[in-house]
Amino acid sequence: MNRPPKIIQFLIPALIAVLLLTGCGGKKGEEEKKSFSIAVFVPGVLAGSPTYEMMDKGVRMEAARKGATVKTVEGGFNQAEWSEKVTALAAEKTYDLIVSSNPSMPEICREVQKYYPDQDFLILEGSGKTDDQISTFFFNHRELAFLLGNFAGLITENRMEGNEIRKVGLIAGQEYPDMNNLIKPGFEMGFKNIDSAIELDFRVIGNWYDASKASDLATDMYAKGADIILTIAGGANQGVVSAAKNAGKFVLWYDSNGYAIEPGVVIGSGVIREDKAAMEMISRAIDGTLLRGSAIKAGVKEGYVDFIDDDANYLKFVPVAVREKMDRIISDMRSGSLTLPAGTER
């Protein structure tokens, strides 16, 4: 009984007008000489994520060296939107390679490739699959966690005087497949390697940013006897550091050099050389030597994940006895003489 409002009658011409006005502006002519073009898709945001930043940096450095162009697109935290955005990137048909980094990306990219079969993808931290058309590179988290576990075990053993509890901690932002299948088992394998009596205190924050909660959790864990905590909680890691500082205990950093964050508190750190991997893979891609669907797996021996044992703070704060024992384990793994028994892999 009411007539449709005038809005409709006004809006449609208005929309068309906007379209025409902007459309008439024209677009610069055809691209000149086409150089190798790369799109980096960040499943999340760059800010606050060292691994994504490392990937972006690695890609950009190598691209700059070889005269390729790079475009970075952030996908945001809504996983449901990633697929649409990767599709849009592929639809541009101007990118020779789309690079991303997250175990969930291969499944998304496979879907996209159904529509754009010529599009090449490279996923660092990918999850491999045979007869895949997507190139993946993945880091051996189990080995890294094993190394860190050994170190944690050594630290808690070393602090045994007057302390009956042998306990190490692990704090995760959220539970995710790699955490449950690779990191936690690897870490456990590591400290059990030192002493099978050591226990694990594993806790989850529920997100990657609530540093206050991380601090409270860590305080509780330290109070209950953990001497050192491996923290894999994104921005919330800082809460663990602050708790450790107050409790006079220690923190283990996971994926990038963390010694400088709080010298004497962060006394051990692993590293995932996402930048190195990115650079090498991009180099291969530009040279045309990156095989489609190749799945490269890299661990300590290959030098893509490692325990940082040459940092000044490490040398300064970790007792010689611990360092000596740790050195042996590290060198065994680097040389390949120590390998882990088969376990769940991606």
Partner: peptide, 22 residues
């Protein structure tokens, strides 16, 4: 009925941000 043009404006706004980003 006015939902249609209104939703169109917002869809446009969303898509505009998204394509401009890409």
């Amino acid at each position: 009925l006015a939902v249609i043009p209104s939703a169109l404006v917002f869809a446009y706004l969303n898509q505009a941000a998204s394509t401009a980003m890409i």
